[in-house]
Amino acid sequence: MPSENLAITWRRMPERYRLVGTECQNCKTAYFPARKLCPKCRRKGRIVPRQFSGRGKIYSYTEVFAGPSGFELEVPYLLAIVELEEGPRLTAQIVGVSEKDVKIGDEVEMVFRRIQEDSAEGLIHYGYKFRMRRRG
């Protein structure tokens, strides 16, 4: 597994660990991953960090049977486009359920999980995945 540059991993920790993206205070558009420039407001935009709630719903999903290296133990797994309640969409694994338990529109919440490790002696990468929201 090719390992990611340490500085990049480190820089993305707030985003991966607790869903810190950005928001343009001018047009109130939320961005995840973080953007440095608001494409709508351009130079009038005022970008500030924003932590997302971690709640959202499944916009679309697929089941992965042939995953990339490092995910051999997890196949088959669910990969979804999750629409956060603040608006942005992101791609993430859905954990703890199988394909038959999931449908588009289901409510999900962010969990903190291991994503992959560089090697037996390498860095462990953590980040967001999602699970079905608790009923009731």
């Binding site: 133990l73 997890e74 954990v95 703890g96 969990v111 903190f112 999980r113 291991r114 994503i115 462990i124 953590y126 995945k129």
Partner: peptide, 16 residues
């Protein structure tokens, strides 16, 4: 634990 859970991920969830 699930394949992608360890003492750190469980600690984070309990802490949250």
């Amino acid at each position: 634990p699930d394949i992608d859970e360890d003492a750190a991920t469980l600690a984070v969830e309990a802490a949250r």
